[in-house]
Design a protein around this nucleic acid. Structure first.
Lengths: 221, 221
DNA sequence: TTCATTTTTTAGGCAGGACTAAAAATAAAT
DNA sequence: ATTTATTTTTAGTCCTGCCTAAAAAATGAA
């Protein structure tokens, strides 16, 4: 089989492997991948064979999979496309940050050499997407100079600004909307409640542990 | 087979049938369709069976195919999506009118209920695409109040404005660019040359018959 | 009407990408 | 160490869209 261009489906797999490789360490298991791409492990096995033949991944049977340089390049580009589209959808079309994921999943597979560079310029070369994730540059580098921690690591009296989310599921994002929390929201921890991990936030009431550990923040100063 | 949602491929077929039905009159032949969608007649036959089963077309063997109301609705919507994306690509991203067709072919198949309405609003509810073709409304109506004729029907001394093109192939569009002709170009026919159908255009030199019969214009006044 | 030509359909395949069921390899537990 | 449980892979199907080759229907000419 001579496959020159990864199909949409293959791009999805490469992206998924990239993310999972980033989260955990070491090669990615077939099971984890199957969960991520919403396919049965058997289907994943088949796809991995293709990806290995295409030179996009290294795969040893029963030992997990990892990206080659070529595969990583494609994965990063797919992520770049995804995040640029998200910026467009939220900043220009006025979608909520909880509404754009599925749409961007479709748009990211549109094939065109020049399109993303033009969209990037049109959007003003944004560095981060609507969820606070860094947007890879066209040369494949991913730059994120921020020093982010999760909000559950803040000390009482510290103030911080929300810069991203750990969990970017629709449900969590809508919950944040309901609480009035978004990117750029500044706050100060008044008091921790050790019993359930929640904290009182100055002027904003109580935030639960589940919320706090899913917020990426930058400490003020 | 129970098919609720037309696939990208089926949408392409419905769009092609719509266009061909518009051009010629009466049902569309398998051959004409096969040419249009770049597939063999045998493949078209198979697809027509599917489309008929889905209730999108009426198809009698050897008698050609025509759209049902449902099929026409989808075809018009695909065209709407295609043309709105073209406006975006040309007006906002700065692509040339000869560069956007293939890209719009991909974008038109992105499935999302709200997307096109938002894009439409973002673009200021444009009535025409970069080639001068009318953009269907979201209710499925196609409104074009213009009285367009092709430029080869102008009389000497008449002045007119270019409003569209009959042939929107890349090659013709680039040729128009080279001649300095675009939508909105105003001109006046000085003299016809019966021998080859060309005409002298006041201040703009000679335009050939091939150019003139592929320009839609509105007469001034 | 009959023959030749064109158009369309049927029949049989192939590739991609998913599935289920079953086998094989690894990991865990006794 | 041997059995048990889990993970992963193989084997065999299916569906979608395309293909080619061949058969059948329609059309046009003689």
């Amino acid at each position: 089989m001579i496959t020159v261009q990864p199909s949409a489906s293959r791009e999805d797999y490469l992206k998924a492997i990239y993310v999972l490789e980033d989260e955990g360490q070491g090669p990615v298991s077939t099971n984890a991948l199957s969960e991520r791409v919403q396919a049965k492990p058997a289907s994943v096995s088949g796809m991995l064979k293709q990806l290995a033949e295409g030179g996009w991944v290294d795969h040893t049977a029963y030992r997990g999979v990892s990206l080659t340089a070529a595969g990583r390049g494609i994965a990063v580009d797919v992520i770049r496309r995804h995040r640029l589209w998200e910026v467009f959808l939220v900043d220009r079309l006025g979608f909520g940050w909880d509404e754009v994921h599925d749409l961007a999943e479709q748009l990211e597979h549109v094939e065109h050499a020049e399109l993303m560079n033009r969209l990037d310029a049109f959007l003003g070369h944004p560095a981060f997407d609507p969820h606070g994730d860094p947007i890879p540059r066209s040369d494949g580098t991913v730059v994120d100079p921020r020093r982010l921690i999760t909000a559950d690591a803040l000390l009482p009296g510290q103030s911080a600004v929300v810069k991203g989310v750990v969990d970017s599921s629709d449900g969590f994002l809508r919950h944040l909307d309901a609480l009035g929390i978004g990117l750029g929201t500044a706050f100060e921890v008044s008091e921790w409640h050790g019993f359930d991990g929640s904290a009182t936030i100055a002027g904003k009431g109580l935030w639960t542990a589940a919320v706090l550990r899913n917020l990426y923040v930058e400490i003020n100063g």
